[in-house]
Amino acid sequence: MASDYFSNAKKKSPLTSKTVEQMPHSLAGLSFKAWRDSRKKNHKMRNIRWAVLLFMNLLFVFSFWLDLSVLEGSLSGSRLLGFYLMDPFNSLQLLAISSTTGYMAMLTMNFWIGLFTILIFWFILGGRSFCSWMCPYHILAEWAEKVHNYLVNKKKIKEHQYHIGLRFVFLVGFVLLAVLTKNLVFENLNLVGIISKGMIYGPSLLLLWLLAIILFEVFVSRRFWCRYVCPIGATYSMVGKYSPLAVKFDYDKCGYCLECQKVCLVPHELWFVKRGKATQVTHFVDSDCTRCGLCVDVCPGHALTFAVKGASSIL
């Protein structure tokens, strides 16, 4: 069963660590360092992902500007060739408010079609894959992260990390605020919507808020918004909990080099790559993973790959 791969994996007793002879670099007849640096720098997955992300966001823009009518609306709510798509966190807030006010007329058939289409689509593709393959803030944050890491390496600034559970505090908090104030409070702070609407309908003053968050990420805390705040990401994280598409970890090919954790947006999900941590020969990365493929690109032993859960047993 696919769920066995992660639900209790952490609690099991770890596998015995590899001896020097069993390490992939020894098997390849290289020194550890030579093996680690043997994989040529490649950005295959990243380049594909950036191309998809830019294409989809530009499709929104040109659908409006050139009247293509392919992907209308914005990332807050849209229509793909006439089929509605709804942002799941917006929908969640709306459902919460509607159920307290009793005014249900907003929950139209198109609303439900849009919500369920989005939920099924992103369930299949991995939930938070929305973040790295669609969200325009993600690409900005990726560049901000590069600057941030450079500054940390140069010891110009200190790294600040917080508890990863914060996102769920914000998720619950924003839904409660929505109900208490009868307003989609988060939509006014939503960087996804602000950038998406800024590109399509023209910039607004809220770009200053975007700038503030980016500066905070550059100088204080790496990937602060995506890691600890964004309730959209948290919603998608729940959507993708049992998603069939995930990054697969092959213990036999791992050389404990930790290159993957260095590039990962959610390194806590790669807990099994450390020596003496893995409990199974195959692990699937859990729901916080955005399926961005950065780890797939850097892993010297090709131990991390995109895979469909259970596919090996079916095919």
Partner: peptide, 18 residues
Amino acid sequence: IDEEDFLYGCIKCGLCVQ
């Protein structure tokens, strides 16, 4: 609809604009 309900019901997608 009434402004009070409009403010939270509108998801700011901009489909009407388009």
